[in-house]
Design a protein around this nucleic acid. Sequence first.
RNA 1: GGCGACGUAGCCAAGUGGUUAAGGCGGGGGUCUGCAAAACCCCUAUUCGGCGGUUCGAUUCCGCCCGUCGCCUCCA
Length: 459
Amino acid sequence: MKLSDTLTGEKRDFVPLDGTVRMYVCGITPYASAHVGHAMSYIVFDVLHRYLEFKGYEVRYVQNFTDIEDKLIARAAAESTTVEELAERHIAEYFEDMAALNVLDADVYPRATQEIPKILEVISVLIEKGFAYPSSGDVYFRVRKSPAYGKLSHRSLDAMRAGARVEPGVEKEHPMDFALWKAAKPGEPSWDSPWGPGRPGWHIECSAMALRYLGDSIDIHGGGQDLVFPHHENEIAQSEAFSGAEPFARFWVHNGLLHLDAEKMSKSLGNLVTIRDALAKYSSDAIRVSVLNAHYRGPGYYSDEALAGAERAAARLRQAVSVRAPGGVSGERLDPSAHRERFIAAMDDDLNTPQALAVLFDLARDMNRDAEAGRDVADARSTLLELGREVLGLRIEEREAAVDDELAARVQTLVDRRSELRAAKRFAEADAARDKLSALGVTLTDSTEGTTWALGSPS
RNA sequence: GGCGACGUAGCCAAGUGGUUAAGGCGGGGGUCUGCAAAACCCCUAUUCGGCGGUUCGAUUCCGCCCGUCGCCUCCA
């Protein structure tokens, strides 16, 4: 398959270094509930994960939690709790959110606070090699020592220097030098180090975890586009300086950012919709469809209109898997192999999920049409479910009725009475019964085989 | 200011140097139904931001312009 690489700007053939694909995706900083922008990112990498496995690769997927960081410290203080408690709570919530979105688990979920020895090792080696220097309890990375600094984000040190913010009271050799280790302030969580008590800087934890769990050279490093600079730029600099191995990551994969009302959804802007908010209104299939309906590298848009449309689209797939030829099949069958090939070709082309989804919709239409014509669509149904579920992570299942028996019995009684009225052609009374049920949120579906009902709007 | 991305039907969104420019939503028509609802089927861009250039031919390649957005500071 072909995959885009932010570092080179190329779309080229993806072949793992060896039999196992090593994939590292930057995880969350667990100081707040995850929002739908996170959902977009992790759905994208979930589909990449799933597709690589579908292609027969073994994948070792590592996703971190940065559970010590300025925001966590500030938020914990504001909530009068500890950093650990705050992080633990949001990590647990994150796992629930991901499960609800049908995102497969990574193989390892390392946490910064549990990787301090490796972090200290990396920093020590960087100092030994001259890539880092202590400065009054802090340790900084020396960007001028790294000649290729800026290669990922495609900018020069000079260009960055112009806009660099100079923090007062910090003694750095260059404005762009960044902290590997931060001296502890009173009351902050800290760990002992050769440079005094402190905590890791923002970028070092990802380098340490990637190096520890995946090695010096990994196949895919992913994250949102907003991480390209400075986070990933710094990760490359640190990791390559530490190991001497290049490239640190063979493919840098970045997803576009989710927008809400024409602006990027971000924590600082405060225009957030949490994953829980979204799941309260829309199914995970709808959320996934809305994400996968656009290419991962472009921006995404979250709006009620878009999600409602995606909900209808997801329902279309769900409906298609239940179609059967009325009155038996004629012996001809719908052969889905061409659809399957088109789907794979689309996914092979840098994960073109909009096109892959389109193939599934084409298949759904063909199934409806052919079933009506008396053809056997069993193979097509298997293909639709295989590709939709395994690769795109859709559930494609009937909504849970979630109706207790007592209510079901009462509704059924009313439905039966209406059926009797209809049979007697007392339509005015029958319609009144339907209206009454409708007011209770029950939708009726009449067919030649009788009347079925469901809570809420059908399918 | 520097770097980068993008502008395709009412909305979202793929795509291609040249037979009919995917798909979804919405809208219109039809089938089904006692009537509905739901569902399904069909239709829905002579045209791809504007102006030039390259070419036999460009929406697709190049240049300029206009517009939107992102990064350069914490962010998936």
